[in-house]
Write a protein that binds this DNA or RNA. Structure first.
Lengths: 238, 238
DNA sequence: CCAAAAGTGTTCGTACTACACCCATGC
DNA sequence: GCATGGGTGTAGTACGAACACTTTTGG
């Protein structure tokens, strides 16, 4: 087959998670920004932010770029989710979408553009979306919840330093269930990925909690296949 | 950006695993078939079997098709691995490759085409490959080893029925380390995915082992995102 | 009987859970 | 002091690793 005749468009889309209080429960929960489609197919429906992959940008760069363009956000975590390539997922056209998922901090999400055509939704309570995007978000949510339990990605929702309670609340928001503070503390302390600082947070009506930060000698951005090779890598995105 | 000007070629490649005795140790180990490139870039080097994605075939179909074309094999397991899209991974061209990994049975692998331009290699002892294919195989091996420990994919290397020792030997071949027969038995029995049959294998100079088969009510092919939604699915590829 | 692999029992250590309890601060 | 969350201790349980032991066949 000649490449010129391939006729397949290559897109990226990104599921961008931030934590916000859920309107029903008041508890913190994952939210995502969606953009309203102006043209057909699926004109008028909400869809994941995305766009075509440029000639001279990698897939991850393309994801970061259109994330920045549509929401003015820079992710603290970005990882490939899956490549969706069913023939009929876009009517008339043939589009293969490489989907990424990203985490951003709540403060950033506050500043994010929001308007007629960009709006944030609670990730587990979405309207009908364009294309196969409902399925994609479900999968991204599953990945987020699975991965938060065995990796350090929760950190991407927080700033440089944080208390163990703040970290636990991130886990609780993602998993949507309460965690035992005592056991959570021991688990995370024994994982060896956390460094206690001397600073404490004063001003609360209780014993001041210690601030922690992550051990920066461990990678936070998922490099895909590469991250399993190298062991001494130190690059970290804040 | 107009799609017509995108100028990105979309390919699939597949890492196909079969188990064969390793020449050094004599122990069973993962092998993969590679094809020799005839043209530049990387002419003369070995590479993963692959090809362009057709206009009217899904990514998984494309993987299965070129797997059949290059090795005359049909996989018992097929799953997407990762989409590789760095700008410079192919000199001059811009190629995005969606890579799949597949498992085939040893008997099938015996019949597989092998010749001047198709040859099997021990997966952990490869020559320098074309493109970024060495990295890809490393990643696929990592995925295989990780997944064999928590899922039922080992079954894809075996026939309809098998003894627990045969199943254990598959795990040992993949993980390249011996497993305790007693503990392995209990683990797999308590997982509830195995059904004992009445048949036993006689003729050995020892107590005849019972034959087992997998509970077919559980999916073997990885449907990607979809497999996490449905719970009652029953489709199985033998 | 012996060899060899199938299959069972038992002990030990680790890790997670639940929950009682003490500590340090603001008011 | 007292309320509030920070932080520690501890007993119960589940699960995997290690390994001794019994069972059933062929020779």
């Amino acid at each position: 087959m000649a490449r010129e005749e391939q006729g397949i468009a290559l897109a990226v889309s990104t599921v961008i998670f931030a934590l916000r209080p859920h309107p029903d429960t008041g508890l913190s929960a994952p939210w995502i920004p969606l953009v309203r489609r102006i043209a057909d197919p699926f004109g008028g429906l909400w869809a994941l932010p995305g766009g075509w992959v440029g000639q001279s940008e990698s897939l991850a760069d393309a994801a970061a770029r259109n994330l920045l363009e549509t929401t003015a956000l820079e992710p603290t975590y970005l990882e490939q989710l899956y490549a969706f390539g069913d023939v009929d997922r876009s009517p008339a056209d043939r589009v293969v979408s490489v989907v990424y998922w990203a985490l951003v901090r709540a403060e950033q999400a506050q500043q994010a553009l929001e308007g007629e055509n960009v709006r944030w939704f609670a990730a587990d309570d979405l309207p009908q979306l364009a294309f196969d995007h409902n399925v994609i978000v479900e999968y991204a949510l599953w990945r987020l919840r699975t991965k938060v339990e065995y990796s350090r990605i929760a950190r991407a929702f927080l700033g440089e330093t944080f208390t163990l309670t703040e970290l636990r609340e991130v886990h609780e928001a993602v998993l949507q269930r309460p965690l035992d503070p005592a056991n959570f503390r021991r688990q995370v302390e024994s994982s060896g990925t956390l460094v206690p600082t001397e600073a404490k947070v004063e001003g609360g009506r209780h014993r001041p909690p210690r601030l922690y930060r992550y051990d920066h000698s461990i990678e936070l951005v998922d490099n895909g296949p590469l991250s399993h090779e190298k062991t001494g890598s130190t690059r970290v995105v804040s």
